[in-house]
């Protein structure tokens, strides 16, 4: 190794280190570039994107009506068996007996958010909710009944 290459290697190496130091140093003196989000504090301003897949919900309107007919297509499409539908027979206003939903059970603990239930639902009853704080102390709490107490099928949905 010649003295020249020895020295040039030394200085080049040293310079490359200084270049690196300049980057980190500039970050230290520019705290405005910090990107940390203070999570529990910013809960109020924290807004998820509308398509964010937090959980599956059964959409209810203000009259406590939903669009689920209890057909069971979502149950069939779910790859993990995280949806169970318990249906009942109900007499409609026209006196005809038809299938209706009793309980739409959703096992959040098994759901992989593939979106097949929402996509396959023929009456657009299901949707993704933005709730993401799912931590609970009891696993049983992750088994949810999606249709609210006393809710009925929206008129005009077959």
């Amino acid at each position: 190794m010649g003295l020249k290459s020895y020295l040039s290697g030394l200085f080049k190496g040293f310079y490359s280190l200084l270049v690196g130091l300049r980057v980190t140093n500039s970050y230290f003196f520019h705290p405005s570039r910090i990107v940390t989000q203070q999570y529990p504090e910013n809960r109020k301003t924290l807004k998820m994107f509308e398509r964010f897949k937090g959980e599956v919900i059964l959409v209810h309107n203000e009259n406590n009506e939903h669009r689920c007919t209890g057909c069971g297509i979502c149950e069939m499409n779910c790859p993990n068996g995280s949806i169970e539908i318990i249906s009942k027979m109900e007499t409609g206003e026209d006196g005809k007996k038809r299938k209706a939903i009793d309980k739409h059970i959703y096992h959040l603990s098994m759901c992989t958010f593939c979106g097949l239930c929402v996509k396959s639902c023929p009456s657009k009853a299901l949707a993704f909710g933005n709730e993401f704080e799912h931590a609970v102390f009891d696993r049983a709490k992750l088994d949810k009944v999606l249709n609210k107490e006393g809710s009925v099928l929206m008129k005009g949905v077959e």
């Binding site: 998820m48 994107f49 398509r51 964010f52 897949k53 992989t112 958010f113 593939c114 979106g115 996509k119 993704f128």
Partner: peptide, 27 residues
Amino acid sequence: LDIFEETTGGRLLYSYNCPGGLMNDIH
């Protein structure tokens, strides 16, 4: 990931494809 989240709804696992196309249109 923000771009993904806005369009696909997932940050890491997107499940955005389906046979024959996409789950939904781009945002």
